[in-house]
């Protein structure tokens, strides 16, 4: 009996290294640390702009985005104006990501010769895991100045610079519902330094709705609509835009149809004159090209 036991012991000792060598045990089997991590949702939208307005997306730290936006003339102008393609309004902008959450930008647009500056900050990021956050929230504030000469119809005098300045404040609230679908709402306040006409208010409220649906890894269909709670006057329409985003490596091309001529918040939300019903629709595009200005810390040494 004793003999058998000793033999068993010896055999066990002899084979023990082989037992541990024969299999490839998972050295992390006992770990569950990864489960408690927070997973932040990325790529709710392909670009920092939905179409005319902003999306919740901000640029990565140290990234510059050079933007060219174009709106051609109204489609209903017919063959004489080549369905609007003879006329174009241009917007040139530079955005820069100071941190992963904070983006600032400046732009110039041909429409009313506007200068614009904005800052947007990502307050909340949609996430799952340890921190469960159902939505992403970004706050965006911008200022525009119409440098074009505009004469008052009442006094016949030119407005001064301050009178042609307007501010926009908006919360962008978005949820990525699935890999392909995202929705966004945008409660917005636009303040004009000078009330646009004698009987109207300085402050205008609107609520934007937007969304995207990916149709392939690189292409998505986007839509954006702003409902105005109060209007400057009844000649202005709500802004509606539909388009596609096509992403090709470093570029994002956004092609769309919109009834808005302006490409800054006050001008496209509250100063849209185009009527979709009459074919007063622009074909337009945005091109976004990113450049790395400052490398991430992992690449600095």
């Amino acid at each position: 009996m004793k003999h058998i036991l000793t033999t068993t012991m010896i055999v066990l000792f002899a084979i023990s290294p082989f037992i541990s060598n024969a299999q490839q045990p998972d050295l992390f089997a006992a770990d569950s640390t990864n489960k408690t991590q927070t997973k932040i949702t990325i790529a709710t939208f392909k670009n920092t702009r939905l179409i005319n307005g902003h999306s919740v997306e901000t640029l990565g730290a140290g990234i510059m985005d050079f933007r060219i936006h174009h709106r051609f003339g109204f489609l209903n102008q017919g063959l004489y104006d080549f369905f609007g393609l003879d006329n174009a309004t241009t917007f040139l902008g530079f955005d820069y990501g100071i941190t992963n959450r904070l983006t600032v930008g400046i732009s110039r647009s041909g429409y009313l010769k506007q200068m614009e500056g904005f800052a947007k900050y990502r307050l909340l990021r949609q996430s799952t895991g340890k921190v469960n956050m159902p939505v992403s929230v970004t706050f965006q504030a911008s200022v525009i100045n119409k440098t074009a000469d505009i004469t008052s119809s009442v006094t016949n005098l030119k407005y001064n610079s301050s009178e042609k300045t307007a501010y926009t404040y908006q919360f962008l609230i978005a949820r990525k519902l699935s890999e392909g679908a995202s929705l966004q709402i945008m409660p917005t306040l636009v303040h004009y330094n000078l009330a646009p006409n004698t009987t109207s208010s300085n402050d205008y409220y609107s609520l934007g709705f937007g969304g995207r649906q990916k149709i392939s890894k690189r292409i998505s269909i986007n839509a954006e609509y702003y409902y105005q709670f109060n209007k400057i006057d009844n000649t202005y329409f709500n802004s509606l835009a539909v388009g596609v985003d096509i992403e090709t490596g470093g570029h994002v091309f956004q092609l769309h149809f919109t009834n808005s001529t302006g490409m800054t918040e006050p001008t496209f939300i509250h100063e849209t004159t185009g009527d979709w019903g009459k074919g007063e629709v622009h074909f337009g595009f945005n091109v976004s090209r990113v450049f790395v200005i400052k490398k991430p810390k992992e690449f600095r040494n």
């Binding site: 990325i42 640029l59 690449f299």
Partner: peptide, 15 residues
């Protein structure tokens, strides 16, 4: 994985 270009990083993960 961190890339020099944040957009490339997004495409790496997404696409």
């Amino acid at each position: 994985f961190v890339f020099k270009n944040a957009l490339m990083q997004e495409h790496f993960n997404e696409n």
